[in-house]
Design a protein around this nucleic acid. Structure first.
Length: 523
RNA sequence: GGCGGAGUAGCUCAGCCGGCUAGAGCAGAGGAAUCAUAAUCCUUGUGUCGGGGGUUCGAGUCCCUCCUCCGCUACCA
């Protein structure tokens, strides 16, 4: 058994006090597509997500709804699990911070940081907002009615001096800068790396990493009056999943992680705090922090007050999970912010999926069904056009890998669709429906070549639209064990003489309800 | 204020170290074909490349300056 390289990829762990929204869906889909890509490319993949279930906000939300924090956590975890299933983006494991295994991992991480002399106890004084669960600098405060001081969010603040454990983050400035220098792509895209470097260069102050004002959390080793504040607790989930601290754990080989996929708002925690914690605990550092942008509905930020909060499950149900996945990964350059709208989604579904790819498959396979008795014909000698097209398709694995090096998912899809477009031009100019009458062997070759290109395109598209491509590869009678990227590097992978199933459309066109009625003459 | 990014066809954007007549996709217009999910193919753009100045034989592509937008500037899960 050859040792396949391990590839460990994670999403951030959502805070468990609310239902999933489109941002969670986007991150999960992107990470899932990367995981599938690597798996099809021969890697031994571990794909992990999780839930951040501790903290004062959990306690408060739960109390407000008359349940225990654990009940709230369970409910939210179930919602996220359902989202994973509905989006074809279920992970291999879900680390919930309330799990015993996670408590063990977080406590061990803390203990090692303490053993390194990086944790000390001190006072944490300042203006505290219970509602925001955060301290604010005096300069940030705003004046409220009657001259009272309020947090920037408008929440009331009070002066407190809380005892807290601190992490000596300040001591890690130079080591972090060296990390960014030695691994220039530790944070990607570059834009975020630059921000992080600038931030660290300004100098770091120590980090408060425990709280004693609430108790819904992991007790600090040796001081049960404190629980770990979010940083140590939540970030530790990434090592929990690999079985840490058990050196015998089967998943130990997956650490260090290959990629932590996160939203741009939490870049600092992953690119500064996390590597510092790991250095302190003398653990290996993750290979890369992969930052993605935000999604906006018609350019507007999603918010409850505007009333444009979208349930990702509703979107998946309405457009189809694969269609939604394709739209998000194709339309938004990965790493940048993006916008979505009904019109844009419909345009992608119809132009790219139904027309470019779906229709190409249908016209090719329908001709095989009608003119070749449903049996994949054998090609005669290949023309220059045949070979050129096949070569373009066979080059997709290498091109896709190159784009994936920078996690440019949209570029991978752009490259695949360029080949699909090429195949459409090929099919139109070769006119197999004319050859049917005057040169049947040539028609057979054209159909074979087109089917072959469809096979390679389908294999490469699997990470993005797993269900639809399973269907298309089934229509081409491609065996389950011949659907990896290496199989797309070989032209003429289809076996002539194979009986193909009856063709059926893979991507239906999206027709608006009103338009649908118009077509039926029901208006 | 400081640091960084962006301003290119109606829309979304490519354009690396300066060089032949500034590109792609989508949308729009015209045409061809009819195998196919009314799908496909071909043709079609008078764009001040944010404004101004400069360097150069030659500048979206380098320098200066101005305008506009955005991100970061410490503990918002």
């Amino acid at each position: 058994m050859s040792a396949r390289s391990p590839f460990y990829i994670t999403t951030a762990i959502p805070y468990a006090n609310g239902a999933p929204h489109i941002g969670h869906a986007y991150e999960r889909i992107a990470a899932d597509a990367i995981a599938r890509f690597k798996r099809l490319d021969g890697f031994d993949v571990l794909f992990v997500t999780g839930m951040d279930e501790h903290g004062q906000k959990m306690q408060r939300t739960a109390a407000h709804e008359g349940q225990t924090p654990q009940q709230l956590a369970d409910r939210t975890a179930a919602q996220f699990a359902a989202m994973g299933t509905a989006l074809f983006a279920g992970a291999d494991d879900v680390v919930r911070t309330t799990q015993t295994r996670h408590h063990a991992a977080a406590r061990e991480l803390w203990t090692r940081m303490a053993a390194a002399g990086d944790i000390y106890r001190s006072k944490y004084p300042g203006w505290y907002s219970v509602r925001d669960e955060a301290f604010f600098d005096e300069s940030e405060l705003i004046e409220g009615p009657g001259g009272t001081l309020l947090a920037p969010t408008g929440a009331p603040v009070e002066w407190v001096e809380e005892e807290s454990y601190y992490f000596k983050l300040s001591a890690y400035r130079d080591r972090l800068l060296k990390l960014y220098r030695d691994s220039p792509d530790f944070v990607t895209p570059e834009k975020y790396r630059n921000e992080i470097v600038a931030f660290v260069e300004r100098g770091l102050t120590d980090l408060s990493i425990s709280r004693s004002t609430f108790d819904w959390g992991i007790p600090v080793p040796g001081d049960a009056r404190h629980v770990m504040y979010v940083w140590v607790d939540a970030l530790a989930n990434y090592i929990t999943a690999t079985g840490f601290p058990d050196p015998e754990a089967l998943r130990q080989k997956f650490w260090p992680a290959s990629a932590h996929v996160i939203g741009k708002d939490i870049t600092r925690f992953h690119a500064v705090y996390w590597p510092a914690f790991l250095m302190s605990a003398k653990l290996a550092l993750p290979r890369q922090i992969v930052v993605h942008g935000f999604l906006f509905n018609r350019g507007e930020k999603m918010s409850k007050s505007v009333g444009n909060v979208i349930d990702p499950l509703a979107l998946a149900r309405h457009y189809g999970a694969d269609q939604l996945r394709y739209f998000l990964l194709r339309e938004v350059p990965f790493g940048q912010d993006g916008t979505y709208s009904h019109e844009a989604i419909v345009n992608r579904i119809n132009a790219d999926l139904a027309n470019d790819l779906g229709n190409l498959a249908q016209r090719c396979l329908a001709m095989v069904a009608r003119n070749c008795g449903g049996i994949l014909p054998a090609p005669a000698a290949l023309s220059e056009a045949d070979q050129a097209l096949l070569a373009q398709a066979a080059a997709l694995p290498a091109k896709s890998r190159a784009a994936m090096q920078d996690y440019a998912l949209h570029m991978v899809l752009t490259g695949i669709w360029r080949v699909a477009g090429e195949a459409n031009r090929y099919f139109a100019s070769e006119e197999p429906w004319v050859k049917r009458k005057n040169d049947p062997p040539r028609m057979q070759t054209i159909l074979y070549v087109t089917a072959e290109v469809l096979r390679m395109v389908a294999i490469m598209t699997q990470p993005f639209m797993p269900a639809s491509m399973e269907k298309l590869l089934g229509l081409l009678s491609v065996p389950e064990n011949a659907r990896n990227f290496v199989d797309a590097e070989i032209a003429q992978g289809l076996v002539a003489g194979t009986l193909l199933p009856l063709p059926a459309p893979v991507f239906p066109r999206y027709i608006d309800a009103e338009e649908h009625l118009l077509k039926k003459g029901l208006t």
